[in-house]
Design a protein around this nucleic acid. Structure first.
Lengths: 134, 134
DNA sequence: TCCTAACTGGTAATCATTACAAATTAAAAA
DNA sequence: TTTTTAATTTGTAATGATTACCAGTTAGGA
């Protein structure tokens, strides 16, 4: 848990039990969950947790860039504990998001056509290996 | 207008005035509009047009792949008349989506890590050239 | 011209996310 | 350690894009 305290402190965020819990959850669940899944999974162990806090916390952590928002799915925002740059595959059948580790020549670009880049997202959509085999 | 009749017929969609109007609009407005903007822009000339028809039509045209859905923005789905593959830049200040014509080595891939690809999206987010200069 | 499945339009429902305000708490200052 | 204050948490209500539903209309083949 000291690890998460350190990460938050380093970025100037106040340490709260809720933030530690959510950050730990994202670190240990690399399934690209959405806010509602995070809320429901943590609710049982943290009965006072509020949905709004989950949203607020995710937003705060996105601001300091320790997590990343994925807008690959049309219906909900999903979250990714931010480490090395990588692309994502969304299965249009089962809805799971899978990391794809491919080389992208633009991954470290700071601008395109004069526009300043802050985030780069590579999204593939299709049918995943498992769903393809029925 | 014959052009759009031909496109729809070729894909087996029924020809309706609404579909022709919406397809023409997307061809002539490469601003990546969302359903609401399309609805409002066309409503004055087509008073009987319904919001539901706009959604239905966009969905039908996406199915036959003559237009593309962009999920780059968190709040709404935006649409692109589908031509050559290209990536997109979203300005986080003014909200505009700009085409970026860069080479991507994965643009024509049919699969990654065994997962069958149907769509490829390259999204850059940041501050556009115009907003950067205040 | 007739027939039928497909399409349109209007309203109501859904659902993720945000707004708001009162109560609580982290952590800096005394 | 205690005090103080701004930041955070929580629950509820509001928002807004999208979808569901269904009655009425229409495209286009027979």
């Amino acid at each position: 848990m000291e690890k998460y305290v350190h990460i938050l402190k380093g970025k100037g965020l106040k340490i709260t039990p809720q933030r530690l819990t959510i950050l730990k959850y994202l670190d240990e669940n690399r399934t690209h969950p959405d806010a509602d899944i995070i809320y429901n999974d943590l609710k049982s162990m943290n009965p006072s947790l509020s949905r709004t806090t989950v949203y607020n916390t995710l937003d705060a952590m996105r601001n300091i860039k320790i997590i990343q928002e994925l807008t690959i799915s049309k219906t909900e925002t999903r979250y990714d504990y931010h480490t090395d740059p990588h692309h994502h595959f969304l299965c249009m059948k089962c809805g799971s998001i899978i990391d794809v580790d491919i080389k992208c020549p633009h991954q470290d670009s700071k601008e395109v056509d004069g526009h300043r880049i802050e985030e780069i997202h590579g999204y593939f959509k299709g049918i995943c290996k498992i769903c393809s085999n029925e």
